[in-house]
């Protein structure tokens, strides 16, 4: 198993992932780590139907995904791993998911969030979780699509935060 991309994207599997990141990373397995969708048949079916034939899809709870990634069960798959939130990414990391780089894709605005770019808004909890991951040696970069420049997450924060 080679983890070719670990991404936080609140849209999970969508156009940017299927049409930009899959071709860019040559991923042949998309793993969605999300407790809610793992238990919602309709959303799982729609997700599985959307992925082109030849690409494996796994949808499971966050901790189960962390264990799967460590288990060797995925053979020599090139895995694109998706989380809806930073806290899920941290949970998976703590449960042993071999994440060395984390891509921030879409984390949209909401009440009380700090807007860092057109697609990234961070809550105080997101910032704490990202700091924890950063301190643990995970390289965290914001990049919506492969043709955009990567930006280190810390440089997106206002100076008082950074």
């Amino acid at each position: 198993m080679k983890l070719v991309l670990a991404r936080v994207d609140n849209r999970l599997i969508h156009g940017q992932v299927l049409e930009a990141w899959v071709p860019n990373t040559h991923a042949n397995c998309i793993v969605v780590a999300n407790d809610e969708i793992a238990e919602t048949t309709m959303r799982r079916l729609l997700m599985e139907a959307a992925v082109p034939k030849g690409i494996q899809v796994v949808v499971d709870k966050v901790e189960a995904v962390a264990h799967l990634l460590c288990s060797g069960e995925l053979g020599d798959a090139r895995v694109l791993l998706l989380f809806a939130t930073v806290s899920d990414a941290l949970l998976a990391f703590r449960a042993g998911a071999p994440i060395t780089t984390l891509n921030l894709g879409n984390m949209h605005a909401g009440a009380g969030k700090l807007k860092c770019s057109c697609t990234i808004a961070l809550s105080p909890e997101d910032i704490d979780d990202l700091r924890t991951l950063d301190d643990s040696g995970v390289k965290i970069m914001s990049q919506c699509v492969p043709t955009e420049r990567e930006i280190a997450w810390s440089s997106m924060l206002p100076r008082t935060e950074g």
Binding site: R11, I13, H14, G15, L18, R43, L46, A49, A50
Partner: peptide, 11 residues
């Protein structure tokens, strides 16, 4: 299929 409009519409 698989785009955000379809993902949200599906619900």
């Amino acid at each position: 299929l698989g785009g955000t409009p379809a993902n949200i519409g599906g619900s």
